[in-house]
Amino acid sequence: MGGYMTALRRYAEFSGRSRRSEYWGFVLVNVLISIVFSILLLVSGYDYEAMEPSGFSIVVLVLLGIYALAMLIPSIALQWRRYQDIGWPGAVSIIGWFVNLLTLIVAFIPGNDGPNQYGPDPKA
């Protein structure tokens, strides 16, 4: 939960670095929230095959959309800082949006020890 809250506090901060723990904490909480939304849609009677919302499922879908939009900037900023943590320019993360394997690899690479051109070591 700490990584999630740290990412939200640094909402639109593209400078500096983010550790793997911050990245994976943010991803884990977002996955759990997505699971909760999916369960709410199942309970509300949302028909996944026909994709026809009705009643409560419309409310859940609207809330899901609002949440997704609210998390867009923090997730982009976090990914940007994660790239900078391993010493790559944050702009390379744009490529990662199209090549998801690159983003997955970067998520597992440990950051540079000590300060780099993007800021001090967040572990220190």
Rank of each mutant, 00 (worst) to 15 (best):
Asn112Gly: 08
Trp88Val: 05
Glu49His: 10
Lys123Asn: 14
Ser18Arg: 09
Ser21Asp: 11
Phe37Gln: 12
Asp113Thr: 12
Phe98Pro: 01
Pro120His: 12
Ala91Ile: 10
Trp24Gln: 01
Phe14Tyr: 08
Phe108Glu: 01
Tyr48Ser: 13
Tyr67Ser: 05
Ala12His: 00
Trp88Tyr: 15
Tyr4Lys: 02
Leu63Pro: 08
Leu28Lys: 06
Asp85Ala: 02
Gly111Gln: 08
Gln84Gly: 04
Leu28Gly: 14
Ser15Leu: 04
Ile66Trp: 13
Pro53Phe: 07
Ser44Cys: 05
Pro110Met: 07
Tyr23Gln: 01
Ala77Gln: 12
Ser15Gly: 14
Ile95Lys: 01
Leu61Ala: 06
Glu22Tyr: 02
Ser75Glu: 04
Phe26Ser: 03
Tyr67Thr: 00
Leu64Trp: 13
Asp85Glu: 04
Val99Met: 07
Trp97Gly: 05
Tyr46Gln: 01
Phe98Tyr: 05
Asn112Phe: 03
Pro115Ala: 15
Arg81Cys: 00
Gly3Leu: 01
Ser57Asn: 13
Ala70Pro: 03
Val92Leu: 02
Leu69Val: 11
Leu32Asn: 10
Pro53His: 10
Ser21Tyr: 11
Asp113Gly: 14
Ile109Tyr: 02
Phe26Pro: 03
Arg17Ser: 04
Phe37Asn: 06
Leu69Met: 13
Ile109Met: 11
Ile76Trp: 03
Gly55Gln: 06
Phe108Lys: 02
Tyr48Met: 11
Val99Tyr: 09
Ala70Tyr: 05
Arg20Ser: 05
Val99Arg: 10
Ser34Phe: 04
Pro122Asn: 10
Met1Arg: 12
Lys123Met: 14
Gly90Pro: 00
Ile73Cys: 02
Gly65Met: 08
Gly45Cys: 07
Ala70Glu: 07
Gln117Asp: 15
Asp113Phe: 10
Gly2Trp: 11
Ile33Thr: 12
Val106Asp: 00
Val43Cys: 07
Phe98Asp: 03
Gly45Val: 09
Val59Cys: 06
Tyr11Phe: 09
Ser44Arg: 07
Leu63Ile: 05
Glu52Phe: 05
Gly90Tyr: 00
Tyr11Met: 04
Gly65Asp: 11
Met51Asn: 13
Gln79Asp: 04
Asp121Leu: 07
Gly45His: 13
Ile35His: 09
Val92Pro: 00
Val31Gln: 10
Ala91Lys: 13
Val99Thr: 05
Ala91Gly: 05
Lys123Val: 11
Tyr67Asn: 09
Gln79Asn: 15
Ala70Asp: 01
Tyr46Leu: 04
Phe56Ser: 15
Ile76Cys: 03
Leu8Asn: 10
Pro89Met: 03
Pro53Cys: 09
Ser57Glu: 13
Ile66Phe: 12
Arg19Lys: 12
Tyr23Thr: 01
Glu13Ser: 10
Phe108Gly: 06
Gln117Val: 08
Val60Ile: 14
Gly65Lys: 10
Ala7Asn: 07
Phe14Trp: 01
Val27Asn: 10
